[in-house]
Every structure is written in structure tokens, then in C-alpha cells.
């Protein structure tokens, strides 16, 4: 899947904004948004927030987790834990990219936040690589990927599933050959078996 398409799905997450204008609600097919009252916060889909921000019509309030201290803790936890920890948002990387991209002026210490999110992403990616390596070595045909976010899953999609498919192909060929040779050996012994009966 194209990363843009992951972003497309991530753009549906809700985010809080403070509009700078008054307006009646907007009746989207996907649900109503609004009414907008100047300087009263409300929740809107991320794509609406980004659009309004680009028009300078709102301030974006960063999600709870987009806070230096919380991210610092998250990073430590991710580092010390061997498995993947649950991320505060299913689309954290998309949200971070879009919000930091368009509303850097609404968020304090953007550069540090950007760096730390990148760090978390890198830690998770390196864990992901080593567990992929293990998986292929053990040629496992099943894996729980519970706390992985969509973007992370998508990043391994070009490689892991295909590698496993090839392994499966080799294994099932081996099985077919084994069955065939066993079959030719067992048939006579069966025949003798039935003979004695």
C-alpha cells in the first residue's frame, strides 16, 4: 500500500482545534462537524483541521500524547521493553507528520518533539527488523503484530509476507516430495500387510 493511503486512513482520526470564526455545523456524509464558535475548542477530523489551519482559520491543539515529557517516557519504555509497546495513537506517525507539518506554530518545542518521535519510530523499526529476521530463520507462518501501527505494518509489507510465501512454497514442495517417496515405499508394505490378513 502506498504510504499516502495509510495517511488517508489516518486523516480520519479526530483532533481538537480552536476555530477563529463562527459558523453553523457542517453536515458531512461521514458525520456532522461543528457548530464552530470562535475560541471554543471542538473535535474535528484531522483532514478538516489541516485544511482550516492552512486557511489560517483555526489553531490546532496537539493531542495529549504529543508532549515532550510523555514522549520521553514512551521512548524509555520502548527501549527497555523487548516487545512492542502500545502507541498512544493508532496513527501516531501520520498525526505527528501532518500536525507538525502544518501547525508548527501551535505546538511548543516542535523540533524536540519531531526528533523524539523519529527516535521512537527508529527504535521500533529496529525491533521490527530483528523480529522479522528471527521469524524468517524459524520460518514461522504466523505472527502476532498486536501493537504495531498501520504505517509500521505497511513498512514491512513489501518484504516479509513475500519472503514467507517463498518459504511456504519450498516447505510445501518438500512435503509433496516426501509424501510421494513415502507413498511409493509404503504401498508395498501395505500390500504385504493386507496379504497376511
Amino acid at each position: 500500500m502506498d504510504p499516502d493511503e495509510v495517511e488517508f486512513l489516518g486523516e480520519k482520526s479526530m483532533i481538537e482545534i480552536v476555530p477563529t470564526f463562527n459558523s453553523a455545523p457542517i453536515y458531512f456524509i461521514g458525520g456532522d462537524v461543528g457548530p464552530f464558535r470562535a475560541s471554543i475548542p471542538l473535535r474535528v477530523p484531522l483532514w478538516v483541521a489541516v485544511h482550516l489551519k492552512q486557511q489560517q482559520q483555526c489553531k490546532i491543539i496537539p493531542p495529549d500524547w504529543m508532549d515532550l515529557e510523555k514522549l520521553e517516557n514512551l521512548k524509555e519504555e520502548e527501549k527497555s521493553n523487548r516487545s512492542f509497546i502500545k502507541m498512544p495513537s493508532e496513527h501516531y506517525i501520520v498525526e505527528a507528520k501532518l500536525i507538525l507539518g502544518c501547525a508548527a506554530d501551535d505546538i511548543p518545542r516542535t523540533d524536540e518533539i519531531r526528533t523524539i518521535i523519529k527516535d521512537i519510530w527508529d527504535i521500533r523499526k529496529s525491533k521490527l527488523r530483528s523480529s522479522m529476521d528471527q521469524m524468517i530463520k524459524k520460518s514461522a507462518m504466523y505472527a502476532a503484530v498486536d501493537n504495531l501501527t498501520l504505517m509500521e505494518i505497511n513498512s514491512i509489507r513489501p518484504l516479509l509476507p513475500h519472503a514467507l510465501e517463498q518459504i511456504y512454497r519450498i516447505k510445501s514442495n518438500k512435503r509433496a516430495i516426501l509424501n510421494r517417496t513415502q507413498g511409493s515405499v509404503t504401498t508395498p508394505s501395505n500390500a504385504t500387510g493386507s496379504f497376511t490378513n
Binding site: M141, Y142, A143, V145, P161, I167
Partner: peptide
């Protein structure tokens, strides 16, 4: 049932919201 290409096949259970990679 997980078909791992061998004859011994494992069973797994899924809970709501679980994410897995599977055939």
C-alpha cells in the same frame, strides 16, 4: 488452523482487536 507447510498444523485463537500475520 495455521498451515505452516508441514503436516503438523497449529491452532490459534484470536481476541477482538488482535492483529496477526497469517496465511
Amino acid at each position: 488452523v495455521i498451515d505452516d507447510g508441514n503436516d503438523d498444523n497449529d491452532l490459534i485463537d484470536l481476541t477482538t482487536g488482535a492483529q496477526v500475520l497469517i496465511g
